[in-house]
Design a protein around this nucleic acid. Structure first.
Lengths: 122, 122
DNA sequence: CGACTCGTACGATAGACCTCGTAGTACGTC
DNA sequence: GACGTACTACGAGGTCTATCGTACGAGTCG
C-alpha cells in the first residue's frame, strides 16, 4: 500500500521522487497549473528565481493543503523539491519544462501576469 | 436551478451562451485543456482551421460525453459554437485567446505536438 | 407525414480532487 | 535528552468531474 517504499533509508531516506523528463505529461502540467493556488505558487517561484522554502510562500490554506499542492506540482514535473535540513526547498524545473515544451511555461506565466493586471485594474 | 435561463426562446432559442473576453479565466482555460479528450478536440480544431461539426471529431467516448466536453470548452472560452441546421459548428476562439493570453494557445498546441511525437516515437 | 440524423438534457455512478484536522517524523537548538 | 520547527501521512467530508444510458427536440429528406 506504500507506493513509495520510503527510499529504503539507505543513506538519504529523504529523497523525493520526481518524474523524469520522459514521464512528464502535458495534461498533468496543465492540470497542475489550472489550480489558482498552484498557479500562484508557480508564479512566486518564477519571480523568486531560486529555491525557496514551502513556508516562504503564503497561501490562504492550511499547511496540509499547501503540502498537497506542492506534491501535485512535484509529481506533475513542474517543480523540484529537495530537503535541506528541516526545510524543503522548492524550485521551478524551468530547464526541463523549456526543453520539453518550449515557450509553454513563459506563455502561462505571461498570461497569469496579464490576467492579474486585468483583474486588479478593475 | 437553471443557471442559463434557456435564452427565453424568443426568436433564436438556439443561441449558445459564450463567455465574453472579460470572463475568460486563465485557470479555466488551463483546466479545459488539461483533459486528454478536450486537448485532442482543440488540436483537431486547430489543424482544421475552420468550423467543423461535433461529429467530425471522433472521440472514444459516447456522444453524451462528447457534448459535455464541447460544453466545457465553450464555457471556458476556448471554442465558439454556432448552430447551422442540424449540425453545430465548432471553431477555436483563436483571436480572443491570442488577444488575452498571447502565445499561450500556440505554446500548448506546440507542446501537444511535441508530446504526441515523443509518445509515438516510443 | 414519417423516418432518420445530430445534438441536448437529465439522472446516475464512480472516481478524482480540494480542504481540513490530527498525529507523526526528521532536523536543528538548547 | 528535551523542545520547537518544518513538513508529511492518513483519514474524512464535501464538491466537482468524466462517463454512461435513455429520452427528447430540431432539422432534413424520402
Amino acid at each position: 500500500m506504500t507506493p513509495v517504499p520510503r527510499a529504503s533509508a539507505a543513506t538519504s531516506p529523504r529523497e523525493l521522487a520526481h518524474p523524469s523528463c520522459d514521464e512528464i505529461r502535458l495534461e498533468g502540467v496543465l492540470h497542475a497549473l489550472s489550480d489558482p493556488m498552484r498557479l500562484r505558487v508557480v508564479r512566486e517561484l518564477a519571480v523568486a528565481d531560486a529555491e525557496v522554502a514551502c513556508s516562504y510562500i503564503e497561501l490562504p490554506v492550511t499547511k496540509s493543503t499547501t503540502t498537497h499542492h506542492f506534491r501535485v506540482l512535484r509529481e506533475a514535473g513542474v517543480i523540484r523539491q529537495t530537503y535541506r535540513g528541516t526545510a524543503k526547498l522548492n524550485g521551478l524545473r524551468r530547464d526541463d519544462l523549456d526543453a520539453l515544451f518550449p515557450g509553454l511555461l513563459d506563455a502561462v506565466l505571461a498570461a497569469a501576469e496579464v490576467q492579474s493586471a486585468r483583474l486588479a485594474g478593475s
